[in-house]
């Protein structure tokens, strides 16, 4: 195994890892604010991919497709929260979790009913070209797009969370919902905004994922969704930088395992093995702090 080979795998790992990171952000933000594992998040990702599929077929370019997909997903996220989760704001957590599972099933199966279960090829909206960096190390235009999209969106997110009023409200609500309410923050609006932002990121991830693998199907969100969730836990669920690091790390490790001859089928197992190990040894994730129950 040469150095070049390792670097190549690292590049491949980082590009898939970026997609996990984009999805993981939505999981982590929603968990941070209402302590819900939003199982429907992976399906918002699939809706984003399909939106991109239709806009691309309609002849729109990459940027417009991305923006429209993000807008559609943001709206979808807000609607899901309003209709399914808000009525349960004070219910037991298991009840909301099960509702999330229900929403996930609903989106997937509505997708199958309306769009068909077969995978559709994604139209070419970017010219695929491969650039040689040095020796055997290459990077293709799609990987570059994934990286650029991730970096730009991360920068925007960082700005929103730390520099804007809504970002401050989000941090306040996730720290202490009651106190934030008493301080005059509109908690419902803040939660809606969190869903909108998280879902928009998943929508963007859906489009770039679909360009990368060039196909879409209604169940495409299930596995990336689960993996992104693992990434969020790995980084410490509820912690935004954790989702980024967790996503990249998972992408790299997975690609690494896949590149070992004879191990490729174990790729999906790796994510779950990491999940178990992290939960057993550091359940709050790499960046998490220990919170103990007060007795």
């Amino acid at each position: 195994m040469t150095f070049d080979y390792i670097v190549q795998q690292l590049i491949n790992g980082i590009s898939i890892g970026s997609i996990y990171a984009l999805i993981a952000l939505g999981y982590t933000m929603v968990y941070g604010i209402i302590k819900l594992i939003n199982f429907a998040h992976g399906d918002v990702f699939f809706v984003g991919a399909y939106t991109g599929y239709f806009t691309a077929k309609a002849g729109l370019g990459l940027i417009l497709s991305l923006i429209i997909a993000m807008a559609v997903c943001a709206l979808l996220g807000v609607i899901i929260e309003r209709l399914a989760y808000r009525p349960l704001r004070n219910a037991a957590r298991i009840v909301i979790l099960i509702t999330a599972i229900g929403v996930s099933f609903l989106l997937e199966n509505l997708g199958i009913v309306t769009l068909g279960a077969q995978a559709q090829g994604f139209p070419d909206i970017v010219n695929k070209s491969t650039y040689t960096l040095w020796g055997d190390v290459t990077i293709d235009s799609i990987q570059l797009i994934v990286l650029v999209v991730t970096v730009v969106l991360m920068a925007v997110l960082q700005y929103v969370v730390h520099r804007t009023k809504i970002g401050k409200a989000m941090r306040a609500v996730s720290f202490d919902m009651e106190a934030a309410r008493l301080m005059g923050i509109n908690v419902d609006t803040t939660i809606s905004a969190t869903f909108a932002i998280g879902s928009a990121l998943a929508g963007a991830a859906g489009v770039v994922f679909a360009i990368m693998y060039p196909s879409v199907d209604p169940l495409m969100g299930v596995i990336p969704g689960l993996k992104a969730f693992v990434a969020a836990v790995l980084g410490g669920i509820g912690i935004i930088p954790g989702a980024l690091v967790g996503g990249l790390l998972l992408g790299v490790v997975e690609t690494g395992v896949q590149s070992i001859p004879g191990m490729s089928l174990w790729r999906d197992g790796v994510a779950f093995a990491i999940l178990i190990l992290i939960l057993i040894f550091k359940p709050t994730g790499l960046f998490g702090k220990n919170v103990r129950e007060k007795v």
């Binding site: 302590k35 594992i37 957590r93 979790l97 689960l226 969730f229 693992v230 836990v233 089928l265 174990w266 999906d268 197992g269 779950f272 093995a273 999940l275 178990i276 939960l279 057993i280 359940p283």
Partner: peptide, 27 residues
């Protein structure tokens, strides 16, 4: 090993274990 975990964390750990078992059959 998972009994130290609570609530959501236990849920996802068991989900992970379930998937690992399936992947073992698959491979």
């Amino acid at each position: 090993p998972t009994l130290r975990l609570k609530g959501d964390y236990l849920a996802i750990a068991t989900l992970g274990f379930g998937e690992i078992i399936r992947i073992v059959w698959l491979n």
